[in-house]
């Protein structure tokens, strides 16, 4: 599923069937190459939903058991949630020091949260496999150079 498709998904509590928040972004860990938390808006209890705490990331909505799982995400999520670690819009450098373009979208596996690919350039001119991801910093997203 693409970030652009998953954004603004409703987060629905399965115990009350009420919408408790909306998805507004994603927190990505470059080491595990996966989404570790979902950023929320319109939530009462906090800004983050840890990936481990959600029940399902469905095609139309994210489900949680109840809104008690929404919070500040904990220290590991906060460390990766800053603007410096954001992926969208950032330039992509290979480990060889060559720029490939800018991240326009990110494809992830809704079952596991694993990043499957980075979509570069306006209009998806290129794709970089998710397993090439090395680092996400304030200057660039670094990906492994292809041999």
């Amino acid at each position: 599923m693409l970030f652009s498709k998953a954004n603004r998904h409703k987060v629905v509590s399965s115990s009350t069937a009420a919408t408790v928040a909306k998805v507004s972004g994603f927190v990505v860990d470059p080491v595990s190459r996966s989404v570790v938390a979902v950023r929320l808006k319109k939530a009462e209890k906090g800004e983050f939903l840890r990936w481990a705490d959600l029940v399902a990331f469905g095609a139309d909505a994210v489900t949680v058991t109840d809104d008690s799982v929404i919070g500040d995400g904990g220290p590991d999520v906060s460390a990766l949630a800053g603007k410096a670690h954001r992926v969208l819009g950032k330039r992509v450098l290979t480990s060889g020091g060559d720029e490939l373009g800018k991240v326009d979208d990110v494809d992830f596996d809704p079952e596991t949260g694993t990043i499957t690919s980075l979509v570069l350039g306006k209009g998806a001119t290129a794709e970089v496999a998710g397993d090439r991801l090395i680092g996400i910093g304030s200057y660039a997203v670094v990906v492994r150079e292809t041999p």
Binding site: P30, A84, K90, L93, S95, G97, I134, G135, I136, G137, S138, Y139, A140, V141, V142
Partner: peptide
């Protein structure tokens, strides 16, 4: 030219 770490920091 920027000097960039593998973590993406210049």
């Amino acid at each position: 030219r920027p000097v960039v770490t593998m973590a993406g920091e210049d």
